[in-house]
């Protein structure tokens, strides 16, 4: 009744593409919120204006990638969706609160542009929500990796619904995700910045974030040894693992060097490659599971007819989507001349 593994794998790969797109676009929007939170120095106001300008027209579109992931998950792997929704109820609900506050606070702030007090309060809500949400997202991903998400009927609340996701490892992954998103955002902002001083601000921030990513990654790897032995074993034994790790490390070092040398387009390319490789490495380590240790892709997959139809829908959707996305970015990301801090509607 279930679909063959190959079909399920294709759909899962497309989900991973969406998740990657979300991390690269939506993740960076969250990272922008972090830098809004940490805005400092003489150019604090310009930093905030730049962030807001960079996120404004595109965050809703970036956000849809997450919805695509969720929709694909519940359509194509319904048992996995149900299992995750039950066991990760609390972090997912908290993440939703973060998403709601982030989106609405950002819109409210852009909207009532007059009162300074209100401005700051929305700004703070936006920034705090942007910081908390990636941590929660990371916790959920960490919990899937750790593989303690099982439903035991009659399990008490704490050990059934809290302990499986609240561990040092999951929190480590949460911090890692936060650092990664902040890094991405800072790297992108070096390219969006209209002048040299502002660019320098974000270059320094990107370098600091790169260091944080490095520390967090190391911590996660150490914790994984005990918490996620399957993952750890894969990382140390699989033939895929070594080239992948080398490539990731190379991308990370290239990004840092490029930032150092002020080669911003290269830095952006390397940062994107780094995040993508991390996510794909994670997925490969999980394969063939979707929620270890109970559900493989094959066990969780919907009937083949559903997967085939969804693939058709994705193919047709992509024909509409990619030109539109290209158009959006071309309209709003035309580099420096596009940004003018006083360019407000009305």
């Amino acid at each position: 009744m279930s679909a063959p593994l190959a079909l399920a794998t294709i759909v899962a790969a497309l989900m991973l593409v969406s998740l990657t797109a979300y991390a690269l676009s939506g993740g960076a929007d969250f990272g922008g919120g972090v830098w809004d939170f940490l805005a400092s120095g003489p150019r604090r106001a310009q930093q905030r204006a730049l962030i807001s300008h960079a996120i404004g027209p595109i965050w809703e579109a970036n956000h849809v990638w997450l919805i695509i992931v969720v929709v694909l998950l519940f359509t194509c792997f319904p048992p996995a969706f149900a299992l995750l929704a039950i066991t990760l109820h609390i972090p997912l609900a908290l993440m939703l609160i973060g998403i709601v506050l982030r989106g609405s606070a950002f819109a409210f702030r852009t909207y009532d542009s007059h009162q300074d007090g209100a401005q700051r309060r929305w700004g703070r809500t936006f920034a705090i929500a942007s910081t908390a949400t990636p941590v929660l997202l990371g916790i959920c991903i960490g919990a899937i990796t750790e593989g303690r998400l099982v439903i035991v009927p009659g399990e008490p609340f704490l050990s059934g619904f809290v302990m499986p996701w609240l561990t040092p490892f999951t929190i480590g992954v949460g911090v890692f995700a936060l650092a990664l998103f902040a890094f991405l955002a800072a790297v992108y902002l070096t390219m969006d910045a209209p002048d040299e001083p502002l660019r320098e601000d974000f270059r320094v921030r990107a370098l600091i974030a790169a260091a944080a990513v490095f520390v967090a990654a190391f911590g996660v790897l150490l914790l994984a040894q005990r918490a996620a032995p399957r993952m750890h074993a894969w990382l140390t034994t699989s033939i895929w693992a070594l080239p992948l790790q080398v490539a990731t490390a190379l991308a990370a070092l290239t990004a840092i060097w490029a930032l150092w040398a002020r080669r911003y387009p290269l830095a952006r390319f390397a940062a994107v490659a780094q995040v993508t490789l991390i996510l794909w490495g994670w997925a490969l380590a999980l394969y063939p599971y979707i929620v270890p240790p109970t559900l493989t892709l094959e066990q969780a997959a919907a009937p083949a007819i559903t997967l085939r139809l969804v693939l058709w829908a994705l193919a047709i959707g992509a024909v509409v989507l990619f030109p539109s996305l290209y158009y959006l970015f071309r309209v709003f990301k035309r580099g420096e001349e596009a940004f003018d801090p006083l360019d407000r509607e009305e």
Partner: peptide, 17 residues
Amino acid sequence: MRYAGAIIGMPFSLEGF
């Protein structure tokens, strides 16, 4: 959702686009 996801996920996927 475990029961119905595979049956009515289709309109939700289209909605995503």
